[in-house]
Design a protein around this nucleic acid. Structure first.
Lengths: 164, 164
DNA sequence: ATTAAATATATGTATATACATATAAAATAG
DNA sequence: CTATTTTATATGTATATACATATATTTAAT
């Protein structure tokens, strides 16, 4: 079903607007699907993302800042995410002895296990993006292009207006 | 900058995974940009979306349900969104006389004016998706394709697992 | 060394999201 | 016509997001 039917809107200002709305719309769907996928594990997609980052370090501790930097969700509060993961005993957080401002975060055995379980489950579903290699590349390129423009226009401090 | 540099991850399982992550990542950026764009007007992107739906009705009242149906964000709480818009006097909400369960929502003059202002501002920025017509079409098609698969796999009630 | 600036992380707060449940009115069944 | 089911909307609640601000520690300046 095309975007037009889904949101019952026939008219778009131009193809760019339609693609933009479709992007927001589709991402919303995917992110809801993700939320639902992770829910039975009492994890959010973000938390899963953090666990993967940690696993990627092969046991080396990682700071909150580094996690923040690598997260998909740019405004995410890594500190509170780690809180949640720590509560669930999926990560360990200790003060870095070299620099007491920093926290050394590592993934626990429990964390690794839940990741394993999720990976298996995701494998069987990961073909949820059912695109050919070429299509996936095209999509990837188009998204990069959009972000490139977007980054210039909406830099972190560009408020985009200042009405009252 | 490609996704690889932005999230400092060189390895993806496959092109599909990279495209999927890029989609989530890019949408996050766009939606943050939207949030910031609307902030000076004390509106959210969703609220703007609702106002546009209302304007599209040319003065005919619209029910909460219809708004919900047309919204980009599928799980959005139209009822509470209308609350906010009513507080700001941008919409009018009255009980429908024909069916007292329903609410008749209409956009106010204030609502129309703020929309006009935003439209102008958006016009000058709407080229933020700087794609050719052909690229925009391609993107649109790819997104539809993704959603199509996704809809089948993650139907509203498909929990996707049921661990504790 | 002492004060100021920078950095890493945490916390407060207002709003939004996801979802379950409640309330009220209308439609339908008997 | 009364009881039941369905529909339209609202509310409660736990969690997440955006962002401003606070705290602690290190680095730099004088």
């Amino acid at each position: 079903m095309g975007l037009e039917e889904e949101i019952k809107q026939k008219e778009f200002k131009n193809k760019q607007q339609r693609a933009f709305l479709n992007l927001i719309f589709t991402a919303g769907h995917l992110s809801l699907a993700q939320t639902r996928f992770f829910k039975p594990y009492h994890l959010s997609a973000q938390q899963y993302n953090v666990l993967r980052i940690l696993r990627g370090q092969n046991g080396n501790p990682v700071t909150i800042g580094l996690i923040q930097e690598r997260m998909l969700d740019i405004q995410s509060n890594a500190s509170r995410l780690i809180d949640k993961l720590e509560e669930k005993k999926l990560v360990l957080r200790i003060v870095c002895p070299k620099d007491k401002r920093q926290m050394d975060i590592t993934i626990t055995q429990d964390g690794l296990e839940i990741l394993k379980e999720l990976d298996d489950k995701l494998d069987s579903n990961e073909n949820r993006i059912i695109l050919t290699d070429q299509e996936a590349d095209t999509l990837n390129d188009l998204l990069n292009k959009i972000r490139e423009k977007n980054n210039r226009q909406y830099a972190p401090d560009a408020s985009g207006g200042n009405k009252k």
